[in-house]
Every structure is written in structure tokens, then in C-alpha cells.
Design a protein around this nucleic acid. Structure first.
Lengths: 179, 179
DNA sequence: TCTGTGGTTCAAGAGCTTTTGAACACCTCG
DNA sequence: CGAGGTGTTCAAAAGCTCTTGAACCACAGA
């Protein structure tokens, strides 16, 4: 009935995908996992992106060897991050998903939120430490310097991380234009 | 995906440290955990750094509430990454540790090694996928484009990440000079 | 030599995160 | 209405990473 029901004999790719799709989804899964997301977030997005046509939950489940529940939760996450969209195909009651092309949005968006709350807390703690330490007696001034040095490290991180996400997004957009 | 647990205001200091040292070590632990290291790597380095004097394994263990084995393994890691040094105090048989001030070295060094092997593998997989896909028939050219686009994403990541570590290191050095 | 201290290793266990799958809630069509 | 298909939820299971602590080695001092 549907395409892609075949299997390459000896190689055992994930689910029922042809080898090259398995390689693509696996590669993107590895990258996205490196950035602190779930591997399957990357795999689902990558399959939708490389297929370049709407897929429903069953197709995702069979292609990537996921459970019903996993597909539901992962697509919800991706939709929430706005890297996939849910569409309705005419004459078909099931939801279908399509990939947004702005992939770096997912990384930079979530990275910046995480980074924001982390740095706020770290800065507050270090300020408090500085306050408490300066009240205690017999303290080398060098030690206060060191706490302050770590304090600036936090803001440096924020700045550098922002630079990184901006650069990455810019480069991805540029790549799209070139290809 | 990693969870970033919000600490309650409670702030029970770890081990036997004064509050301000507990705050400092905890803060650095959080930052370092964000970067994919163990929280205790950051805590141990931070305590050595903020004390600004050699400490032996027992002091680290008591201060940070760690086991004998944990201190041994963590100090080995930190030594290997060259962010702490092992010294011998005269008239004392036990090893003592001191913190190197080049903290960003730890982050950038390990980050670059991890990133390097990851990107090499991802690039190879995507190249292979491209090769296999171009052999199959009835394939939209758009799909080959998309694989190539992901391929450039990998090299973009490498470049951006390198930029990030360089910037962060530079800024930390600058901060040291200022303070 | 024996004893105590310091340090390392690693199997077992603890603690977290992710995945599973059964139960349930909607639909739509006959 | 009931049957069949789709989608969601969440407690339980699986899977991973980190930590523990007992066993072990090495060495110094008595």
C-alpha cells in the first residue's frame, strides 16, 4: 500500500527506514543529544525534514521504532518549540506533521531559556556569598577577589552563549541561501 | 534531557563549610554541570580556588561531603584536565591539591575534544547518506539539498563552538587582569 | 615485622531521565 | 448505538550516570 515498506536485507537500520534515512536521523539525533535534548527529538525532526512531506504519528512510530506514547510526547515538545507543525490533510482524519526549516531556533530558544535561569541563580548565589564572606573577619582580600572573578564568569558565559546562538543561526540561514 | 533543579531557599550547607563557601561551590557546580561535566568536578575546583591554599583529600571529603573514592576519581579527572595540581607539602606525607586559575581551559579543552569526535562522525554519516541517497532513483533533488544543508550545519557548529570557547577564555583572562 | 594512614579501583547500589504500554478519551462512520 | 482508528496520559520499567564503600596496594614509622 504505502511506499517504504521494503527493507534492505542484512543491514539493520532503525525501524523500517532505508539506510540513508537511518543515517541522517541518527546523525541529527547525535547532534541534538549533544546539546542536551533527547536523541529522539532530533530523530523525529530529521525524518520529517528529510522526507519533505507530511507524516502521521503511525509512520513516525514505524519508521523510528518508537512507542505510541513516545511519538505523542516528542511531537508535542517539537511543536511547542515550533520546529514542527501539525497539519490536516484533506480526506484524512489523522494529524500529520511537517518540519519547520528553522532548526537552530530550537537550539537557541531553549538554550537561552535554560542559560537565563541558570545564570540568574548563580549570580545571586555568588552575590550572597560575597556579602557573607565580606562580613567574616580575617579574610584575605585575595579571596574576595576570587569570588568576584567567578561572578564575572557568569555574565561572560551569558554573553558568549548569546554570541554563539546568534552566529549559528546566521550561518544556518546563509547555508540555506547558498544551497 | 537534563533537569535543572531549582534549589529551595533552604540552603543547608554541604559538609562542614561556612555558608559562603557552600554558596560558591554550589554555584560553580551548577555552571559546570550545565556544560556536561559532573557537578562535583566544579565543586572541588571551586573550593580549592576560593580557599587559595593547598588542601588534602580528607579536607575535600569532609568539606564537600564526598566519599573517599569520589574524591580520588574527581581529583584525577581535574588533574588530567590540568585545572588542579598535586603538590607535596614539607613535613606532610599526604598529597595536597591546588587550583589552577585557568578555569576556562577545562571547559574549552574537553568541549573541543567531545565536539571534534562528534562532528567527525556526524559528517561521515551524512556523507555516506548522501552517497546512498543519490544512488536511489525517483528522489527529489530537494532532498539531496536538505541532506547537504544538514552537512553544513555540522561544520558550522564546529566553527561556532570554537569561537565560543575562544571568546570565553579571552574574557576570563581579561577579568583576571581587571580585578 | 606489624600498624596506621593515604590513595586507588571497581562491582554494586542509588538516583535520575527516558521510554513503554495499558487505560482512557475522542472522533467518525455505518 | 458499537467498532475501529487516533491521540494523550502517567505509573511502572528500563536504562544510564554517578557515588559509595570494601578490598586492595604502597609506604612510613615504631
Amino acid at each position: 500500500m504505502k511506499g517504504y515498506t521494503y527493507r534492505q536485507g542484512d543491514q539493520e537500520p532503525s525501524g523500517s527506514l532505508p539506510m540513508w534515512e537511518a543515517l541522517v536521523t541518527g546523525a541529527v539525533g547525535d547532534v541534538i543529544e549533544f546539546w542536551g535534548f533527547k536523541r529522539n527529538h532530533g530523530r523525529v525532526w530529521a525524518l520529517l525534514y528529510v522526507r519533505n512531506q507530511p507524516m502521521n504519528a503511525r509512520e513516525l512510530r514505524e519508521g523510528l521504532d518508537l512507542s505510541k506514547g513516545a511519538v505523542s510526547m516528542i511531537t508535542q515538545d517539537l511543536e511547542h518549540w515550533e520546529v514542527i507543525r501539525r497539519v490536516h490533510l484533506p480526506g484524512n482524519s489523522a494529524w500529520h506533521f511537517v518540519a519547520e526549516v528553522e532548526f537552530m531556533r530550537m537550539i537557541s530558544r531553549v538554550l537561552q531559556r535554560r542559560e537565563g535561569t541558570l545564570i540568574a541563580r548563580v549570580s545571586a548565589d555568588l552575590d550572597e556569598a560575597l556579602r557573607l564572606a565580606s562580613e567574616s573577619e580575617d579574610l584575605e582580600p585575595e579571596i574576595l577577589d576570587r569570588i568576584q572573578r567567578m561572578r564575572t564568569l557568569a555574565t561572560t558565559m551569558r554573553r558568549a552563549l548569546r554570541l554563539f546562538t546568534r552566529t549559528a543561526r546566521f550561518d544556518f540561514r546563509k547555508a540555506r541561501g547558498v544551497l
